[in-house]
Every structure is written in C-alpha cells, then in structure tokens.
C-alpha cells in the first residue's frame, strides 16, 4: 500500500512537471530543456531553508517555488536573443552549470545529496494525506495552464509560437510573454521540487540532469504537446511504465539502460507516427510543430 501511494506521489509530481514544461515547450514553443533545474532549485532551496533557517515547511515550499520563478530569468533572458536549437544549447548550459555548482558545494550535500530534510506532514496516514495534497496541486496546475492558454492570452501565445517576427511586427511584445511563460512554468516546477523534497526528505543532484529533461520531454511528446490533458496522460503512463518494468525481475545491467531505451524509442515513434501525441487532435497547436518551427523559420529566411 505504501508503495502504491509513493508511486502516486511521483505521478502527481510528474504531472505538475510535465504540465508546466508543456506550457513553456508545447504552447510557448520555447525550446528550453532546462526544466529539471527549476525542479532542483525548488527542492534544494526549500530543503535548505527548512534545515538551516528553521523556516516552517509550508512556507519554505512556497519560497522554493518563488526562488525558482525568479531564477527563470536565467533561461528567459537568453531566450529573448536566441531561439530554436540555440536555446536548447543555452538552456543545457544553464542546467548543467547550476547542477555542477550543486554537485560541488558543501552545504548542498554535494554529490551525496541533501539529507534530513524535514517532512511536510507526519502521522500514520502521512502518505495518503500527501497524495491528496499533491492531487489537488496537480489539478490546480492543469487548470492554471488551461486558463492561461485559452482566450486572449492563449491566442497571443499561439501567434508568437507560429511566427514570432510577424507577431512582433503587429505590435505585440513577445518578450513579455516569454518571461511570463518561463516564470510561471518554472515556478510550478519549483513547487513540484519542494513538495518532492519534503516528502522523500532526500534529494540528489543526479535526479535533475539531462535524463530527467528527456523523461519530461517524453511525457509531453507522448501525451501530446500543446494539449491540456496530454502531459497528464504522458506523466501517468511514463511514471508507471518504469515501475512496471521493475517487476520483470531483469538484472540491473539491463534494467538501468532499459529506461533510456524506452524513452528514446517512444519519442522517435511518436515523432514519426503520431506527432500530435496520444491526446492531440488532428490539427492545430498540438504535437511537435514547435520542433519544426526553427527549421521552417530558416527555410523562410533563405527563401526571402
């Protein structure tokens, strides 16, 4: 029972992460893969604040999310100058750079990780209460993103993603939208990280690397980029799938790389066979048009 509840906590965390990543990558078309670093910033900041400054855990969680929100400038500012493939590179640099710092600082626990993080709630039904809490937060995350991308603001986001130059030439400010999308998306990732830290009481730097970027990307792509329910479906599927594989009883030497193989295979399969993802419709917004945007942009440039 405890195991199932723990998996459900992970599902909830991943729903928040994938949903917020979808806001940036799917809807915004902003090719940043650094999403896990804001997850890390939320987890570490909240954990450290609670450990060293004895800040009450609920407050430290909110502060962790807030710090992640502020530090999102680290990616949103480069995104004003570079886009597409170049932003991928810049965001990887940002992610690995901060991860390197965390890996080498004494007070973050270095490579060994941060331990003894105070937990949010205790008691006999602690996991059940936490699952309910995370379900509420995840539902709010899905609804918040749904609210942002519908209506007038969503129309502007779509237009910016479709053609940023034409969008700017019509007097719209793309810079504001990028900063807002990164801030909200990263703040949500920070919140997920803080919740994680105060449930498991332990985080390590390796949880927030490129592999996690790939996992989140897979969730968004498989579920359906730029759709409301896609990241949710993707997160549920790709959190439970690796757990299911552990029951196969394969040796560790096969198990470890298997996860990466599955993610890669899924992304490639969906890219070719169903770019709109599991939940995406036949047209409009969904899927991986974002990935082809920079290529289309260059082709158009060359043509003019």
């Amino acid at each position: 029972m405890e195991y199932i509840l723990t998996v459900m906590v992970l599902i909830g965390i991943n729903v928040i992460l994938a949903t917020s990543f979808n806001l940036i990558l799917g809807y915004g078309g902003l090719m940043s893969v650094a999403h896990p670093i804001f997850y890390a910033i939320g987890a570490y900041c909240s954990g450290l604040l609670a450990i060293h400054l004895q800040i009450p855990v609920p407050l430290s969680i909110l502060m962790g999310a807030g710090i992640a929100m502020v530090l999102s400038f680290g990616v949103s500012l480069p995104s004003l100058r570079v886009s597409g493939d170049y932003l991928v590179i810049a965001s990887i640099g940002f992610q690995l750079g901060i991860l390197h710092v965390i890996n080498n600082l004494e007070f973050t626990g270095a490579a060994g990780g941060l331990t003894n993080i105070p937990v949010l709630n205790e008691g006999p039904s602690r996991s059940l209460v936490f699952v309910l809490l995370i379900a509420v937060v995840a539902a709010c995350a899905v609804m918040l993103v749904g609210w942002i991308v519908e209506g007038d603001y969503g129309r502007a986001i779509t237009a910016m993603r479709n053609d940023e130059e034409a969008f700017s030439a019509l007097g719209r400010n793309a810079m504001n939208i990028k900063i807002v999308l990164f801030a909200i998306g990263s703040g949500m990732a920070g919140l997920a990280g803080a919740l994680y830290a105060h449930y498991f009481a332990y985080v390590t730097p390796e949880q927030f690397g490129i592999f996690t970027s790939a996992a989140l990307l897979t969730m968004v792509v498989v579920g359906g980029a730029a759709t409301t329910w896609g990241p949710l479906v993707g997160a549920v599927l790709l959190t439970t799938l690796p757990q299911a594989i552990t029951f196969l009883g394969l040796p560790v030497s096969i198990m470890a790389p298997l996860q990466g193989v599955i993610y890669t295979t899924l992304v490639i399969f969906f890219l070719f066979a169903r770019p709109q993802g599991l939940t995406g419709g036949t047209r409009g917004g969904g899927g991986l048009e974002a990935w082809s945007a920079s290529a289309a942009f260059r082709a158009r440039r060359d043509a003019e």
Partner: peptide, 18 residues
C-alpha cells in the same frame, strides 16, 4: 512577401492579434 499567416489560427484570430 510570403503572407506569414499564424498557421494554427483562424482568419479572425489572425486579425485580432493585430
């Protein structure tokens, strides 16, 4: 020169942006 419509949007939405 090459119109640059917002391709996943309707005609009216294309105009509203402007």
């Amino acid at each position: 020169q090459n119109t640059r419509m917002f391709h996943s949007m309707s005609v009216i939405d294309n105009l509203l942006i402007a």
